[in-house]
Write a protein that binds this DNA or RNA. Structure first.
Lengths: 369, 369
DNA sequence: GCATTTGGGCAACACTCCTGACTAAACTGG
DNA sequence: CCAGTTTAGTCAGGAGTGTTGCCCAAATGC
């Protein structure tokens, strides 16, 4: 809680941190530019840059400023700073990216998986991306399309949640090919973070992100961060009690069963069948849409009551569909304590959120070394 | 986000902060004791103590150590550091306390209010406590038994929440008699903080605290802090949909209406009538208890789904009643994803929580000056 | 009364950052 | 092409930290 023990070493490390952060943010800088950016004096910056260069963290890129006056030397991060691995695991396949501390995607690889041979192929695909990454992979961030145990990083089975990927342990798969911290979280949580950083919820400290796809999920953002709860299972709304088609109380996932919108032999939602009702214009379709909207409104009402968001974001294959948004907005407006409802805007949201976090983690590791 | 600009002044202020925190925690200390406690060298501590004494924050108490070796001088906080005001506002009255930076209660005053003459009496009572406080009041923390608007600190009216205290603005009342920051929050939130600091939820980072009294409230603690939501209205569960006595979906507060447990002409719960059902042993009482428990379980289930707590704490006049706890525990165990349910243990919980925060605020103000 | 023990002060040192002046190296304009 | 201008980077001196090691002061215990 209390700040670190005061010492001259602390002061020096603080200076180095300022220098590194400035370079990470701007890509390349001269010492004078760093000084004016950080407000620290030129001689101090020169000292710090010398230290960091000797430590192998910064390099003189050889580039020079042009324009009036003496040319300055640009410094940037060394290649040795390494990179971070970003992974997405869904029932449809595995995607791996290597990113550097500037957030640039260095390489990308994808593998389509089937249920049986999945695990080994996934490990191989990710190991291959890791091997290609210059400077080595120093940390990894994983987005998984299933509930994630917060402590272990394993995917967990919950009642009434369709289990899509299998009893998988991303941490053990990744620790074969990389060392360093591995963070696993649910894809919906990453999507919410992405919307907060540069999407429809930019800068909003309190909102909920409801993902409507084959599975049902919800991310809760409170005081500026996704709140995962004790086990990491906050927002697993499939089992939440809401209003069914006939007005009776039903768990959310059962509403889809009652409407005949589940895949055979699974608790997964039949998105294609559902989509038809969103595009059609007959009375039957309108009835289904209203029933869906009222069920979703039950979820939103519970969220408003318990976490008081300023905004609700709808995402996922059919959540961001205009027809769905329209009918939910209409229904929700009739509820007490209604809040604005908007559609998600970030493409590949779960990847964007995970990537941003991977960059932050990597930067922190570089600064801490 | 990034740390403060490195400078020698920062270093000095960090040292002073360490010294002040050590003295605040232990009451009185010699310079040598401070040095060994903080790990900072003796000459540095001596310098800092001299600075802080000259600034009027520390004083030589005149006391001396006894035992072997040379006697050391004890230093402690000066009286000029001021105190903090802790207030509780309920429909039954106003309570004011002055506390010092050590957390000692210096004075206390209480006023019973009626609806009409309340506001002026409340202001006078609090002003009196403030006037008696040595060194002046530098900040205030208020616990209010109604929903609190997070930005303005005003009490707000919500649908189906009994409005007990009136459209009150604690900030404007208090700013007459004190200067400095005033923090207002709901009593249930303060109670939850108290349970986390030294009660049945000690050290638990994720739990919910459900208050069952005349009103219904819930505090959501996530990642170690009470999450108030955008407007400060998270946990206002009166309107949350749950299971009614006959199995139909009902807003929680309507369950009490259906059971005849509301006060006449109010949405407040008739606690005395309810208490009889908790103490009685007949079939009718058992039926009511079960109906109440199932309604509460609906709330707990929604909380588990949305915020994934590790623990549920029951508090309030009838929430912590053994019979209530027993029947809720029993009913909740049959739900999917059940979690432990325990009774609150801290006496005067809303005051304890507010007091602890007031001490923290006061300490921060002293350190910052 | 003397040895022991502990609090506190002093001086020297190492280190960090800053200011102000200086040098170095590029461009600009005649 | 050369002097003037402009900008990058360095140097020297100084102020202010925190630390170590040693000393003195003052209390207890025998």
């Amino acid at each position: 809680m209390s700040s670190a023990k005061p010492s001259l070493e602390l002061l020096r490390s603080l200076t180095d941190e300022h220098v590194l952060r400035a370079v990470m943010e701007r890509g390349r800088l001269t010492r004078t530019e760093i000084a004016s950016l950080t407000g620290i004096s030129k001689p101090t910056i020169s000292d710090s840059v010398r230290r960091l260069t000797e430590a192998g963290l910064l390099v003189d890129t050889g580039e020079r400023t042009t324009g009036r006056g003496r040319a300055g030397s640009y410094y940037s991060l060394s290649e040795d700073c390494g990179s971070a691995l970003v992974c997405s695991i869904t029932p449809h396949g595995v995607l791996g990216e290597a990113v550097d501390a500037f957030g640039r995607v260095l390489s990308r690889s994808h593998a389509v998986l089937d249920r049986a041979a999945g695990r080994e192929r996934a490990a191989d695909t990710l190991a291959e991306v890791a091997a290609r990454a210059p400077g080595g992979v120093r940390c990894a961030v994983v987005s998984a399309a299933d509930p994630v145990d917060r402590r272990t990083g394993r995917l967990v089975q919950l009642p009434d949640v369709p289990f899509l990927v299998g009893d998988l342990d991303p941490v053990s798969i990744l620790s074969r090919s990389i060392e360093g911290p591995i963070l696993v979280d649910n894809d919906v949580n990453w999507a919410a973070r992405a919307e907060r950083q540069g999407g429809c919820a930019e800068g909003v400290d309190d909102f909920v992100y409801v993902h409507l796809g084959e599975g049902l999920g919800c991310a809760v953002v409170n005081d500026g961060d996704v709140r995962r709860g004790h086990g990491g299972l906050s927002g697993e709304i499939a089992h939440l009690w809401t209003e069914g088609p006939d007005g009776a109380a039903l768990p959310l996932t059962e509403v889809f069963a009652a409407l005949g919108l589940r895949r055979d032999g699974s608790t997964a939602i039949d998105v294609e069948a559902l989509q038809k009702f969103l595009d059609a214009d007959d009375a039957e379709a309108a009835r289904v849409r209203t029933a869906l909207a009222r069920a979703i409104c039950g979820v939103l009402s519970a969220a408003v009551t318990l976490v008081d968001p300023r905004l609700a974001v709808l995402g996922g294959p059919w959540g961001a569909h205009p027809a769905m948004l329209a009918v939910i907005t209409e229904q929700f407006a009739t509820c007490a304590r209604s809040i604005p409802v908007v559609a998600a805007t970030v493409p590949e949201p779960e990847l964007a959120g995970a990537r941003a976090h991977a960059v932050e983690d990597l930067r922190a590791l570089i600064i801490g070394s």
